[in-house]
Computed example of a mutant assay.
Amino acid sequence: MKKNLRNLMMLSLVAGTLTMTSCRDAEDKKDEPAEPMQNEMHQDDDMEDMDHSSQGEMKNYQGEAMNAEFKDENTAEAYELYVGIKDALVNTDAETTQSKAQELAETEASEEVTSAAMKIADTDDVNKQREAFSELTTAMEKQLEGALASGEIYKQYCPMAFEGKGDYWFSNSKDIFNPYYGDKMLKCGRVDDTIK
């Protein structure tokens, strides 16, 4: 019985270690396809003791300067507010996320973008905001198709988001600042595509 318990504890420790390091390895494997993870890192208080070399960077995170110009002013405004929502989620700031989402819902964006933005604006639960942000990203991608006059937008991917299903977001920079995990796994992800 003790031997089985010891084996179970050892397997749990190994599985946990592999899960925590898988995202760090993702940056080293930018050219390889993502492998879905079986377990998501949850934002539990016991995670605070983990060593995250980028935590200080996250606390001062203000977002990246936009290097893209749009053909349409409404799309430019919608994308700027989308990035504001993303940045607020990186900082795990539910109040700013709500505020930016409300602003986005009031712009002349597509109906899908407006609907997803309202879902974010209607809750102060950051986990629900992150789920709705996934929908917003899908809707925003449709609005970004063929919308750039110049510059680039980076489509980024976290293989661990949503219990290993993975998910995307858009960024002005190739640098990874993960809106699905904030300071828990700030650098988890990779650039998956570039919109030009």
Rank of each mutant, 00 (worst) to 15 (best):
N7K: 11
M9A: 15
M10G: 08
M10T: 12
L11V: 06
L11G: 14
L13I: 15
T21W: 12
S22C: 10
R24V: 11
D25Q: 08
K30L: 08
D31W: 07
P33K: 01
P33L: 00
E35N: 10
P36Q: 09
Q38W: 12
H42G: 07
D45A: 12
D45G: 12
M47V: 06
S54N: 11
Y61E: 02
M66I: 02
M66D: 15
N67P: 04
N67A: 07
A68Y: 01
E69V: 02
E73W: 01
L81R: 07
I85Q: 02
I85Y: 02
T92F: 14
A94N: 06
A94D: 04
E103C: 05
E108Y: 10
E108K: 15
V113T: 03
A121Y: 02
D122R: 01
D124R: 10
V126N: 06
N127T: 13
E131Q: 15
F133G: 00
E141M: 12
Q143Y: 00
L144N: 01
A147F: 06
A147R: 00
S150T: 10
K155G: 06
C158G: 09
G164P: 01
K165G: 04
G166W: 04
Y168I: 01
W169L: 02
S171P: 00
K174S: 07
N178V: 05
P179S: 06
Y180P: 05
Y180R: 03
K184Q: 14
L186R: 05
C188F: 03
C188L: 02
D193C: 04
